[in-house]
């Protein structure tokens, strides 16, 4: 067993873990943050995407022990004070989800895309950037719409924050 200390959704946690434990297992099994999902074992599907120090990471391919001292944000941690994140709102508004299983990873990836590519996104960019996230239900049509709209809403939020 080894001990790891990290911040998850703003709260400091220390856990004794088997060194083989993956970040996603720590989140799901130890912390019961079951919003982060496992959809494959080969880092292909993106259902497990979380942010580690503000950058999107597939939590099924990162050891929990590698997260010592890191700040991890999961789908459970992006709504602020009861207010949904604009990207969450956009997915609902545009029917960007059906079964909901890929959705947490999609939303976390989408926020990361906005962080990297800005808030004015075109369809081509979004489709390309979603390469690491598989959805079996939606055909991506409404996910793409949701990401573009969510990015615009994030721009609005940033403007407000700046004022």
């Amino acid at each position: 067993m080894t001990t790891v200390t990290l911040t998850v959704n703003g709260q400091s946690v220390t856990q004794a873990i088997d060194p083989r434990t993956l970040l996603v297992q720590l989140l799901r099994e130890n912390l019961r943050l079951t919003g982060t999902h496992v959809g494959c074992d080969t880092s292909q599907c993106g259902a497990c995407v979380v942010h580690v120090n503000g950058v999107s990471v597939k939590s099924c391919t990162m050891l929990a022990a590698q997260c010592e001292g890191a700040s991890v944000t999961t789908i459970e941690g992006i709504a602020q004070g009861g207010q949904l994140h604009p990207m969450q709102e956009a997915f609902r508004e545009h029917h960007g989800l059906q079964c909901g299983y890929c959705t947490p990873g999609m939303i976390m990836s989408a926020i990361d895309i906005v962080n990297r590519k800005g808030t004015a996104l075109d369809e081509e960019t979004v489709r390309h950037e979603l390469e690491g996230n598989i959805c079996r239900c939606t055909g991506y049509h409404n996910i793409v719409k949701a990401v573009i709209a969510g990015a615009e809403a994030m721009a609005g939020g940033m403007r407000q924050a700046a004022e």
């Binding site: 459970e76 997915f91 508004e93 947490p104």
Partner: peptide, 21 residues
């Protein structure tokens, strides 16, 4: 109309079988 069930899915509060312990 937008879906009533979405709130739990977009906030990570869905309850899938593997989430049950």
């Amino acid at each position: 109309v937008v879906r009533k069930e979405d709130h739990r899915f977009i906030t990570g509060k869905g309850q899938y079988t593997d989430d049950i312990n």
